[in-house]
Structure formats: structure tokens, C-alpha cells
Write a protein that binds this DNA or RNA. Structure first.
Lengths: 330, 330
DNA sequence: TTGTATGCGTTATCAA
DNA sequence: TTGATAACGCATACAA
């Protein structure tokens, strides 16, 4: 790789001048600018990001912790994040996050990225502290269960969203509503489960141990869990189910079809993300709409803003209920 | 961030000594090593990767071009790649690749990564040249349609795989076999389509314009394409279909169920990747097994080997046919 | 076994 | 409008 010095020599100028034209500084004569440009082209010169990062202490890189690369909900967020980041001049990468590996990650970022974006993960306090010490801000799309050390998060108002779903189901005559949850206390989906339970209680609807079913966030596992539940004679006696993710709603639906449980006749199903798939199942699945493009873009913008000195605030956007056939009796 | 100099001062040694213990060089007394270690801990010192990269001209980072983050087939590859890379001491990132953005990417890598991994994309010759000039090797899991400038690729032998599938279908009495293809000449799936056509010809089975159907690689689009084909009265007269991806096979199956076309009774379906989903559809889908963990790990190993001076060779692994209900008449 | 000194490719300050 | 030159944090050849 050609370096700046070689460019300077070839163009017959100093390295400083090369820098000026590369960074579009004013005060360089057109003639010199041209000379430098052509020297750059001829040598195929590219600036070294490593050197630049060392000097400026900015990498123009952002990282994102992804829970599972194949998840369509996350994919929708990531696409927008990637494009928005690129528009704002940032290079963005994705890594799979697994709790067991959190400590390994602590030493990975110094001098590699300017900021870390989360998809709802609850990082350990020590990780957050360590990141803060390195000057790496953390912003989350989706509110983590613990959010203390965080710079900001962007999410929807899950209680309002669940309330809309539950109220819709009530209108359809349901009272005994179950929920397919996912993961433990620190899981990104836990907020959804807690919101559901809070609203149920507030509405005076029955909540007990049988209310929660556990899928594993993936379609197939949810399908199996539901199949087992059906084979056990649906001990909860639910007439409707909400879920912590659309993929699990789709798995539920697949289980119902397999076990010949009519949806919505015998069981209504409501998902909560509005991934494209929910529109294409039979019946199409009623969902709480999660405005992924808006939220993903906002998270990136807040991060970039924060890196440029603008304080970043947490925000809860509104979601909306989209009623489809999986919960419509009439 | 504390720097190496501060660590040296605190420990009462020189910066060189700090370097020695950080890089586990021999020839440092245990007493000094201990002193340095505790100074590091107290200051919370982390080495700057930017500075290290500048000096060593190695970033210990690898990039992967992903076609679509939500794709379950690619997700399976990425998981293994990420873990294998981490085991080998490399930090790995994923980026979405879109052909339109290829030129933008050309200037992104110098001084940021040591190598680029592809998932079957056919990069433009100029991109490959530019990468080569920067000393960035390119290895692909899945053989690209154009593979000239590539360091190596790892893939299965698609002709052998397709031959196994076609021969299985022949055994079941099929002759008029269609194929759901995806994308154009440069698409990662094009090799699969070409292999299918080659084997069909070799076997003396009918190939004409009607043989190919086009999904868009995604389940929903394949479903819609198939639905249209069925509504048109299945003009190709096929009794079986193979596909360029499992997701499209699943979409086909969904369309058949929707349109009440019995599978495998009226139409046999064979996928080609063996993603988990194919095991959970009804009926389960016959597939050509793509050994994703092996291939993904091998690609990373070849890359790391190459970076350490071992020449990397291209390899075609064997695949196997897994017969399930979607193609079994008996 | 440890320290000194140099350079990696930038950016930025200060002179010219 | 341009040019010297000093950092940035690290690795390493060489000296001690």
C-alpha cells in the first residue's frame, strides 16, 4: 500500500498538502489539488484507517450486538441501522452476543469502535463500566431489563402496546389469555412479558403460573412447546395467546394446524412485532406493530449525535395494533 | 484511556517491558511481570488496537459479506464462522452486501481488516484488484460464479449433489422436473441452477424455458411465485420441483397447501441446504445436505492459514441426500 | 533481563 | 497557499 509520503513525493508537495486535499480543507490552489489528485489515482493510494484512528481517536465504526443472526425481526432492524449508519459516515458491524461470552468482549473494543449498539441485551454492570472507562457509549434499540449504565434506549411503549392487544381480545370475548414468553430475567423479550402481565393484572384478568408458556424464541421450538401444551389438553384453558415474538406466534400457529386446533375458532393468536411473515401465514396473524425502521434509524442517529456532543435521550415510540384473521371471530 | 506509558511509570519499568509482558514474550522476570500486571489492572489499561494495527499492519479482524442478515441458511454459516474466528484470535464482522454498493466498499477496508470472506458473491474484477492491491485476501464459502481474483473458495460439489437429487426423483418416477431459481448471472445461487440444468441435460431429461421458475430467495416471494404458477394451471406440467434454496422450497410447499396441491402426491419438492426448518414443515422436505459447519469453519481456517503464509486451496466437499416425506411416494 | 530509540501513517500546529 | 515537524500508542532491533 502506497502511503501519504509517496503521494507527496510523486506530486512534488508535502504530506501536509496531501492531507489538506484528502480532507477537503479550504485554501489549496486548484493546480496543486489536481496534481495531488492524480498522484493519488496513479498510486492507487487509500488512507490507512488504522493510522487515522490512532491520531484522531475516532474510528468511525460502530458495533451492534445481535442475539441471533437469522432472526427476521432483528434482520429488519439491522438493515435500517446499517444503511443509516453508512449515510452518516459510519462503518457498522454486527456480532452475535451470547451472555457467556460477555467478558471476552470487554477487551475487544478499545480503539476499534466509537460506540456500541444493543438489541435489548442487559449487559453486566461491570461491562458497562468498562466500556464507559474506554469512552464507548452504549445505546440500545429496545429497552434492556437493566438499563442503568446505558447512554440511552429507543423502544416502543410495551405496556400501551400490550394494552391495545389485550383490549382487542377482550372485545372478542376472551378473558383467559395466555402468553408465550421467552428467556429469563435478563432476556431482551422480558420487558414484553412483564408488560403483558402488568396489563392483565390491571385489567383484572386471570394471571397464574399456567398463564406463561415458554418457547425458545425460535419458530420450531415454539411449535413444539405448543404441541406439547395441546397434547396435554391445554391445561391453562386459554382461548387466546399473545407472544413475546412473531416467530413464536407463527410456531404456535403451525402447531395448531398440525393438531387441528382451529385459529381463531378455538384459539386466537396475537404476535407483537409485525415481521413480514405474519402477513403470509394462514390465517394472517394479528400483531402489535413494532416500527422497526423508525426505531433503528433513531438509535443510530442518537448514537452519532451523542458522539458529536449532542446528549442522547431515551425515547418510547408508539406502536399500533394491526388486526388480522388470527384473532378475528366475526 | 490509560496508555502504555502510564503503566510503565506506575510499574517503574520501561514501555518496552510493558510490551513484553503484554505480548507474552519470554525473558521477563516473574517479579517484574507481576508488577506490570498489577499496574495494568489498577489503571484498567487496555491496549489500543488502532496503534497496534498501525505498527504491525495486522488488524486481526475479518469481514464477511452477507447477502441477507435474516436468511437462516446464511445464519448457520455465520454462527460457525464467528466462533471459529474467535477461537483463532480473530474479530469478525458482518456487513450486508448489495451489488449497488460494491464500489463504496472498495475504500472501506484498508487498515481495517486483514481478510474478506464472501458468501458466494461475485465481486467485480476491479474490486478484487483493488483489494489485492491493499493486500486483503478474499476467500469465499460457496463458489462464486466468477472466481478469478479469489484466493480460494470452499463449497460442495453442486453437480454431484444435484445428480443425487435428480436420480432420487427419477427413482420415484419423475421425469419432468422443474427448478425454482433465484437471481441473475452473478447471484450466489446461480451455481446451483447451472448444476441442475447440466445434470438434467446429462440425464436426458427435458429442459426448456418452462423448466425454470423464479422465486426471490425469500419464502414469501417463492410462495407467491408458486401460487401464480399453480393458478396458471402449472403450465410446465412438472411432477417435481427442486429449488435453489430451502426457504423457497418451504414457500413452494406453503403455496401447495394453500392451493390444495398434494405434496408429494401431485408434486414432489426437493430443497438443497438442509436448514432446520425443512425438518419441521408438513411434510418434511427432502434436501441436499449442505455441511454448513464444516464449510464455514474450513473457510475461516483457510483464511487464517493464508494470513500466516500457508497457501489456501479451493475445496469442494461432498454433500448427501436426505430423503424426507416431500418426495417419497411409497 | 531490561531500557533506548525509531518508525508505522496520520492529523494538526506553527512557520514560512 | 504551502511546508516542517511533533505527537498518537505500540512493537521491536539493538544496546546495555
Amino acid at each position: 500500500m502506497a502511503s501519504r509520503k509517496q503521494v507527496a513525493e510523486k506530486a512534488g508537495v508535502s504530506v501536509a498538502t496531501v492531507s489538506y486535499v484528502l480532507n477537503d480543507k479550504p485554501g489549496v490552489s486548484d493546480a496543486v489539488r489536481e496534481k495531488v489528485r492524480s498522484a493519488i489515482d496513479e498510486l492507487g493510494y487509500k488512507p490507512s484507517y488504522a493510522a487515522r484512528a490512532l491520531k484522531t481517536k475516532k474510528t468511525n465504526c460502530l458495533s451492534v450486538f445481535v442475539n441471533y443472526i437469522g432472526d427476521p425481526f432483528e434482520a429488519g432492524l439491522l438493515n435500517t441501522m446499517e444503511h443509516r449508519a453508512r449515510e452518516l459516515g459510519y462503518f457498522i458491524y454486527f456480532h452475535t452476543y451470547q451472555q457467556e461470552e460477555e467478558e471476552d468482549f470487554r477487551h475487544y473494543f478499545a480503539g476499534r469502535i466509537d460506540g456500541l449498539l444493543l438489541l435489548g441485551q442487559s449487559l453486566k454492570e461491570e461491562t458497562l463500566r468498562s466500556l464507559a472507562a474506554e469512552g464507548i457509549p452504549v445505546i440500545s434499540v429496545m429497552e434492556p431489563v437493566r438499563a442503568e449504565g446505558l447512554t440511552a434506549y429507543i423502544d416502543i411503549d410495551w405496556e400501551a402496546a400490550m394494552a391495545a392487544g389485550i383490549s382487542h381480545l377482550k372485545t372478542q370475548g376472551h378473558r383467559n389469555i395466555g402468553f408465550m414468553a421467552n428467556g429469563g430475567q435478563e432476556h431482551p423479550h422480558e420487558r414484553r412479558t412483564q408488560a403483558f402481565l402488568a396489563v392483565m393484572k390491571r385489567e383484572g384478568l386471570p394471571v397464574n403460573e399456567g398463564t406463561l408458556l415458554y418457547g425458545e424464541g425460535r419458530l420450531e421450538q415454539a411449535q413444539e412447546a405448543m404441541l406439547r401444551y395441546i397434547k396435554d389438553g391445554m391445561p391453562g384453558g386459554h382461548s387466546a395467546f399473545m407472544t413475546a415474538s412473531d416467530l413464536m406466534a407463527a410456531g404456535m400457529l403451525a402447531a395448531c394446524r398440525e393438531a387441528r386446533v382451529p385459529v381463531p375458532g378455538k384459539l386466537a393468536i396475537v404476535g407483537c412485532e409485525d415481521i413480514m411473515m405474519t402477513l403470509h401465514t394462514t390465517p394472517a396473524i394479528t400483531v402489535l406493530h413494532y416500527p422497526r425502521p423508525e426505531i433503528a434509524a433513531l438509535a443510530v442517529e442518537r448514537m452519532v449525535g451523542h458522539l458529536n456532543g449532542k446528549p442522547a435521550a431515551s425515547t418510547r415510540l408508539e406502536s399500533s395494533l394491526i388486526v388480522r384473521d388470527s384473532s378475528r371471530l366475526l
